[in-house]
Design a protein around this nucleic acid. Structure first.
Lengths: 246, 246
DNA sequence: CATGATAGTAATCGCGGGATAAACAAGAGC
DNA sequence: GCTCTTGTTTATCCCGCGATTACTATCATG
């Protein structure tokens, strides 16, 4: 029992009795040969879903199994697991903000409430998804810089226009003469949070959707607008808090 | 080079040249002997913080290192890592809801807004913390039943009283004659989310606190109340949505 | 219909990490 | 102080998982 040599485990390479095909007749399509570009897309899509589900500690073997490929094949397309994760991150920013939605937001031909509702409904449809919400949260918990980066984008391309539209709608003074205040940003944050949190409840806490997405968004936009006068009051009365540049 | 026996790695047990003390003179207090109860508390507290920081995949060796103890000692107090994690979960519900705060919420001697602000400020102070927010999110992502369980508690002991107080405050009909509606619950959810999300921004996204907690909470309570008439409108006008029991 | 290029697989390595066993040492009781 | 109990450490096991290597099979091209 003692002193059994354990080194050189690779003693008899490929000494299998028969081909994989004959050994496992249940396996139908033995080997799917795809064009590299297609295979890569398939892997990335699978990885996005997989890591969204189990987190980035998810194992490459399990990912491969779900993709119906062998684990080493992943390493033909990505030099390391980390590289694959980076690729998943990089998928993150594509198609989240649509220039047309942003344009529609500032199109004064429709009433503000309608514009806001439409915008956030479109945004929610693209963003409040299983994969987005979970990966966003995973990445935040892991301390990757993703969130910070995304929130800068959000502040510039969503929050700021929204506040400007409200100012405009109410005939209030505009920046740079009267800079946007933190109170206004916070109020928009709450709108944003109330919608994003729908996704957290659904995709992280595992609750059911409480209501139709359209109903949910329009109610939240309404509540947001109801709260606006209060914020404006703060804005006009006191400039105690240092105003912020856009 | 080949055929080096690797089995029986436990060949020479405890063949160290000298005592740990003499080998590592930098280590001051060689061995802290504590009463089991104290040691256990120490481990649990450390584990809560540790797992909140790195998630439940965090390694027992690293946890032990931070606690200043050796890794096997953990196994004297907990049979497995999983058992320790369960213990961390069980710490979760203690001291989150304070009966006195709940009592104060329904004490009609103070105006509603003040009561709500006080209640949520106290709640936020106890709940919107590094450890709570992160462990809550980790456990949600992992699919543990924690969140569901907590939210049932929340619905019963916070959301329902809040809605009832609002009904009472406005002289509206009460349940069971007029049951609480999903729209009302959703509105409270948004208040809750707007406050909890402060913690998400701070402790998950790594942002700075946007404002003093008291300011933040009182603004959000104000916005919540501003939105109430809208919800009540929905309540009184249409009973399309099936009403819900408490 | 052979052949060269390469998509894909089987087998395996090495180490990191949960878990265990044996040795050790700090106090309590005598 | 001696000894027994038990809190704590040292040394080690062994499996799981990222990564690598060598082989196999598919398909485009002539």
């Amino acid at each position: 029992m003692t002193s059994v040599p354990r080194a050189n485990r690779r003693a008899k390479p490929h000494a299998r009795a028969s081909t994989a095909r004959s050994r496992n007749p249940a396996k139908i399509s033995t080997r799917q040969r795809l064009k590299p570009a297609d295979r890569e897309k398939m892997i990335v899509a699978g990885a996005v879903h997989f890591f969204a589900e189990v987190g980035f500690e998810g194992q490459t073997r399990e990912l491969a199994r779900r993709l119906g490929i062998t684990q080493p094949l992943l390493y033909r397309y990505f030099p390391s697991k980390q590289a694959l994760i980076e690729r998943v991150y990089s998928e993150f920013f594509v198609n989240r903000l649509d220039a047309r939605d942003e344009a529609a937001l500032v199109d004064h031909s429709a009433p503000l409430r309608e514009r806001l509702t439409r915008f956030y409904l479109a945004y929610a449809r693209r963003t409040v998804t299983y994969e987005w919400v979970r990966i966003y949260m995973f990445s935040g918990l892991k301390g990757v810089g993703l969130n910070t980066r995304y929130q800068k984008l959000l502040r510039q391309r969503v929050f700021t226009p929204v506040i400007r539209e409200i100012r405009h709608d109410r005939g209030l003074p505009m920046p740079p003469a009267t800079p946007l205040t933190e109170a206004e940003f916070e109020h928009v944050w709450d709108l944003h949070a109330s919608i994003f949190y729908l996704g957290v409840r659904r995709w992280i806490y595992g609750m059911e959707w409480p209501e139709e997405l359209e109903t949910a968004v329009s109610r939240r936009v309404a509540a947001f607008l109801d709260g606006v006068p209060h914020v404006i009051e703060t804005l006009l009365l006191s400039d105690k808090k240092g105003p912020t540049v856009t």
